[in-house]
Computed example of a mutant assay.
Amino acid sequence: MLDKLKESLRNSPVIKKGEYDYFVNPVTDGIPLTEPELLEEVAEEIVRRFRPEADKIICIEAMGIHHATVLSLKTGIPFVVVRKRRYGLPGEVAVHQMTGYSEGELYINGVEEGDRVVVIDDVVSTGGTLLAVLEALREIDVDVRDVITVIDKGEGSRVVRERTGFSVKSLVKVDVIDGRVKVEDIPAGGQD
């Protein structure tokens, strides 16, 4: 199961961003070429394992967008994008985000108090992006039903759980060892 995802991860080049080992993959970066079969495999497994039920899917720009798109098509749940650009629309919420290799502002639009939401992103690594978004969603007073990432890397899911109480559900866990990506299965229901 998830053969395309695992193969693509094992074949990912690894680059350094400061001290951070960053793997380059179609699921997390859109390069090399992102095959539709890979995206479909990921979305089908998310639906099979986690059965997302919500009013809205919330994804994080940029690499959560393609996962939310396919997931929206498979489930019929509409999605909104947490953007890196300010629009100044009524109700817009600014979020300060810090990761292991970058820092910046994100902006949430189209989410209202009481919405039942599923948050989807490509990878949790340091937890910085998810922490910021989940805290903002808590302030908006939405009902976060699930937090799902395709890939779990590093200590980010633990950090998110400890700081917010939300468990991050992922399909696979990866680590970079000696410049190569090592992939571990996460059994359905086996995380946390």
Rank of each mutant, 00 (worst) to 15 (best):
I108Y: 03
V27R: 02
P13E: 09
P32E: 09
A136T: 07
L71N: 01
E105K: 14
G189C: 10
S102H: 07
K84I: 11
L9P: 00
Y101D: 10
G88R: 04
T75N: 06
E92M: 06
R138L: 12
G104I: 05
L130T: 01
P52D: 14
S125F: 11
P26V: 04
D146K: 15
I177Y: 04
R163G: 05
E53H: 10
V118I: 12
R145T: 12
A68S: 06
I57C: 04
A132P: 01
I57T: 08
G91H: 09
S12G: 08
V47S: 03
E139W: 09
E40Y: 14
D152C: 04
L89Q: 11
P90I: 11
E105Q: 13
D29G: 13
S157G: 13
T34G: 00
E44S: 07
A94V: 15
A43H: 06
K16V: 07
M98F: 14
D3R: 11
R158C: 08
A43V: 11
I58T: 02
F50M: 09
E35L: 13
G154C: 09
D178T: 08
T69G: 09
E155A: 14
R48Y: 15
K17I: 15
S167H: 13
V119T: 00
L71D: 06
V172D: 01
